Amino acid sequence: MQRFVLGDVEVFPIAEWRGAFAPVDVLFPTMPGELWREHESWLAPDFVRDGDYQATFRVWVLRSAGRTVLVDTGLGNDKPRDAEVLDRRDGDFLTRLAAAGVRPSDVDLVVNTHLHADHVGWNTRLADGDWIPTFPRARYLISKADYDYWNPDGGGTPKSTFASPSDIRASFIDSVLPVHQAGQAVLWEGDSYRIDADLSLEPAPGHTPGSAVLRLESGTDRALFVGDVVHTPLQILQPDHDTCLSEDQAEAARSRRRVLAEAAATNSLLVPAHLGGAAAVEVARSNGNFSIKRWAA
C-alpha cells in the first residue's frame, strides 16, 4: 500500500479499477490525433494504449487533524449503470480500504469533488434492498450547486454526451439522495469551505456546476486534489481541450487554467482522480504555457 506524507497529513491512494475506458477521440473530441501520436512515447501505457484512454478510478484516503477523510468514493457495487465498467459491480474496494487500516465506521468525512457516478459510488451500499450510507459516522461534503443541478427535482438540464438522463437520475437516487435523507450531507456553497487547518474546498466549475478542488496546505507542503479538472496529462500541456463529459467545456477549461496556474505558482502537487502511473504531478509554467515538471515518486 503506497503512503506518503504532506506536512501533517498522511495520504493513501486506493485504486478501485484500471483499464481502457473509451477511445481518446470520443472522450476528447477536440484533441487532435497527432497530439496523441506526438506524445505517445511517454503517454503509453499508463495513459493511453491502442487509441484508448487508460483510466484509473482512485479514492484518496487522508488522515488530517485526527480525522479520516475520503476524497471521492469511486464506483461502488451493485449499481445499475449504462457503462459496462460501472454496471452492477462486485468489487473489493472495502477490502482494499481495510488494508489501509480503515473500516467504514472509521471514516469521519467524505469529500465528493463532484457528483458524477464514478465519484460517488461508495457513498452508499446495498443492505436488505435499500441504499444506505456506507460510512455511518461520516459527514459528506457535497457542493450545493451540484446537488441542485443533478437532483431530478431540481430543474437542472444535464447535457454531457456520455451518460443518459436515466443513468444520471439513477446515480443521484442511489448514491446521493440516501446520504441526504440520512442527515449526513453537508451542502456547502460560496467561495470556499474550510475543513480544518490544513484542508479546504474551493469551486472549480465547468466539468459540473459544482466541481471542486480540495486544497491541502500543511507546513511547507502543498497539494491540489482536483477531481476531474484534469483527466489526462495532455490537458496540462493543452488545457483548452476538454472531455465530452463536461457540462460546460469552456468554463471547465478556464477552471483548469486557473488551477494549473496555482499549482505552478505554489509548487503544489497536482492530484487528479483518474491518472495512472504515479497519479500525481508537479507543474511548471513558462510564457503562459504549462509543462510537466516532475512526476510524484
Score class of each variant (00 low, 15 high):
G121A: 02
N289M: 12
G101L: 14
H180S: 09
S255C: 14
G91F: 11
D167Q: 06
N267Y: 07
L62M: 14
E247M: 12
E38N: 10
L70T: 15
D228I: 09
A280D: 01
D191H: 13
V111T: 13
G156W: 00
P104F: 11
V5F: 02
P23S: 05
L245K: 11
R256S: 08
K79E: 06
R194C: 04
D174H: 02
F135Q: 00
G7V: 07
L199F: 06
T113F: 10
D240F: 13
R18Y: 13
D87S: 06
H274W: 10
D78A: 08
D198N: 11
F135P: 04
D72G: 14
L35Y: 07
P29L: 02
L216R: 11
V9H: 01
L177R: 05
D118Q: 01
D106M: 03
Y149R: 10
V5M: 03
G91H: 06
S192Q: 10
P133K: 02
S171N: 03
N289W: 11
L260I: 05
Q181Y: 03
V48P: 03
D221Q: 12
G66A: 13
T232F: 12
R194H: 09
P178V: 05
R222D: 05
F47R: 12
V176C: 07
N151M: 05
S291K: 08
S218C: 13
S268W: 05
R258Q: 09
P45Q: 07
A197S: 08
H180P: 04
W122H: 15
T113L: 15
R125C: 09
A280M: 01
H274G: 07
P203A: 11
D146P: 07
D146H: 03
W295Q: 09
G74T: 12
G154A: 05
A280K: 03
I14F: 03
D118N: 00
V48S: 01
P205S: 14
E38S: 11
K293N: 08
V230Q: 13
L109N: 04
F225R: 11
T220W: 15
E251R: 05
R49A: 13
L245F: 13
T232Y: 02
A223Q: 09
F28L: 13
F21P: 08
S200C: 01
A170H: 02
G51R: 09
G227R: 12
W122Q: 07
P23M: 00
W150Q: 01
L6F: 07
I236N: 03
A145W: 08
A138G: 12
A185T: 00
T73K: 10
L141T: 01
A250S: 14
I168S: 10
A252W: 05
G219S: 15
D130H: 11
L35P: 00
A15P: 04
G91N: 09
A204E: 13
A99I: 13
R96Q: 08
L216N: 12
G7F: 03
K144Y: 06
G19Q: 10
Y147P: 07
G51M: 05
D92Q: 11
H114Y: 05
L70S: 14
S164Q: 05
T208S: 12
A55Y: 14
T157C: 10
I236Q: 14
T68I: 15
A265E: 04
V111R: 04
G76N: 07
L224N: 13
G183D: 04
V26T: 06
A297N: 11
D118G: 06
T30G: 06
L275P: 01
P178K: 03
F135E: 08
M1K: 07
